[in-house]
């Protein structure tokens, strides 16, 4: 018998269930408990760069909106710096780069306000196009789903992005590109997420 490796095993994931809001967004569950809920302000007041909104719906395999999703966003600031001690560079006071939103109980719509991130240095010196990392949990989702939001006005950077390049089927790359529009003078990116079926969003094993 060889020696035994003494690694632990990661705790297995379980679905967040239908009542995820109680724990992570209690106001939405219908009650007030914490002084401050977390994740409602991604960029803070001092962040530089373009102010944007990202919104969409999550759609299941039948084409119906999923109304009990929680999404978390993780992004760099406009200079491409993550608010993390291991990432070189500084972020603006109050810039956290992380947020969480839930889908509307009636329509399934979600959205958050932030700043558009800058390009981030990727592996082996290859620049990644501006993107927001998303993590999606819901009832019926057994392990949180990871995807990325890219931006339609960054076609050149997207084409050179090393992660986009990993997606063998070019037609699927478009599922990661949020479409830019203007509404009431504000920049809004539309990013619908299809869990299954035609136009299924690309999800990553990170």
């Amino acid at each position: 018998m060889p020696q035994k490796l003494d690694y632990l095993k990661e705790t297995a994931s379980q679905t967040a269930g239908p009542y995820v809001h109680i724990g992570l967004a209690p106001g939405a569950a219908g009650f007030d408990i914490y002084e401050r809920e977390l994740g409602w302000d991604i960029a803070g007041p001092n962040a530089g760069g373009e102010r944007i909104r990202v919104e969409g719906v999550v759609i299941d395999g039948t084409g119906s909106p999923v109304k009990d999703v929680l999404l978390e966003a993780w992004q760099a600031n406009a200079e491409g710096v993550y608010a993390h001690p291991e990432h070189p560079g500084e972020v603006e006071e109050g810039f956290r780069g992380w947020g969480r939103v839930i889908t509307d109980f009636d329509t399934g719509e979600w959205g958050f306000d932030t700043v558009k991130p800058g390009p981030v240095m990727g592996r082996i010196g290859k620049m990644m196009a501006p993107h927001i990392n998303l993590w999606i949990v819901a009832r019926g989702v057994n392990v949180g789903l990871n995807t990325r939001v890219y931006f339609s006005d960054e076609a050149e950077a997207n084409a050179a992005d090393p992660v986009m390049g990993l997606i063998e089927w070019e037609v699927r790359r478009q599922t990661l590109v949020a479409q830019r529009a203007e509404r009431d003078g504000k920049v809004v990116y539309r990013f619908d997420i299809r869990l299954q079926g035609e136009g299924e969003t690309v999800f990553f094993d990170i």
Binding site: D60, Y82, M128, N133, V141
Partner: peptide
């Protein structure tokens, strides 16, 4: 109806994956 049918795309980690909120 909520499970992706396609395989996940395996990603070697970059700064986007090895950082996270504090």
């Amino acid at each position: 109806a909520r499970s992706p049918s396609y395989a996940l795309i395996s990603l070697e980690q970059s700064a986007s994956e090895i950082t996270g909120p504090v």
